[in-house]
Nucleic acid binder design. Sequence first.
DNA 1: ATCAATGTTTGGTATTCACCCAAATTATCA
DNA 2: TGATAATTTGGGTGAATACCAAACATTGAT
Lengths: 145, 145
Amino acid sequence: MTVITGLELSPRKVDYLKFILKKGRTVKTTEISSSFKVDPSTTSKTLNELAASGYLNHVPYKGADLTQYGEMYAEFLIRRHRIMSLLLSHYGFSSEEACEEVSRFEAYVSKDAVDKICSAMGHPMFGVCGEITHEKCFHDAQKHG
Amino acid sequence: MTVITGLELSPRKVDYLKFILKKGRTVKTTEISSSFKVDPSTTSKTLNELAASGYLNHVPYKGADLTQYGEMYAEFLIRRHRIMSLLLSHYGFSSEEACEEVSRFEAYVSKDAVDKICSAMGHPMFGVCGEITHEKCFHDAQKHG
DNA sequence: ATCAATGTTTGGTATTCACCCAAATTATCA
DNA sequence: TGATAATTTGGGTGAATACCAAACATTGAT
């Protein structure tokens, strides 16, 4: 049973988990490093750290995929991104502007805040950059080895 | 003529400038360090950096106050904080919750975003933690030595 | 006016995050 | 099976933030 605050991961790690969840499969180091335009060695190290923290299974030279916990967590990350960008879209931001702006600060927005905003918005089903899922909205309690 | 993006300063530096503007006078190192619960030596160094970047006048052993540019910038920082916390207050956050949440991520919110939200809100005069001033809303162009 | 107490700065060190390069290692496919 | 491509490891870097100890400046009380 782990309470998630939403502040567990650094911005880059948030990027990686969202990327892997969106891919929906095992991803190779190079896919990530080229997507984010960083050296593969940088990605490799970050992937190791995410694996060490239980978010990923990382098989060296093979690729990384989300653990059960990592998947649950990444779903929160996507929901946070979409809720926050939907919010900004209500204040004159285009979809692209909203996503870009949110990308800068989302790693520092707590799950409590996201849940509050999500409720106040009536648990919207669609954001400006994709569907918003709410299954995990009401029970924080998750096993985390 | 300096265009401000709002992303110039790290979170701690943002804290310091807001603190000094709110005091409205020269502040001593210890006032800041005790307020933020860090070692005075840490504050002293950060004050030096802010002075080196032109935000502060720092007279060693005497105290620091805002330069003209620093004051203009700090006014933006306060406006950003107040606009963002007012925004959250519209989604079920109490004043305290809104301010606390915003404190975590405000350093990563761009001036363009603040200006958009500010416009969409109709340039509100009052936030949840104080007055909102808008003089600097419409002209980014400011001298910065 | 001096000196002790207090406040401040400097120098040194640590951690976390995020990045790079070069070298070693593993995988893959022709 | 061996060359090429992908990946990891080892070694560094810089920014941000912090602490401690020692040096230094200021101030106030005698």
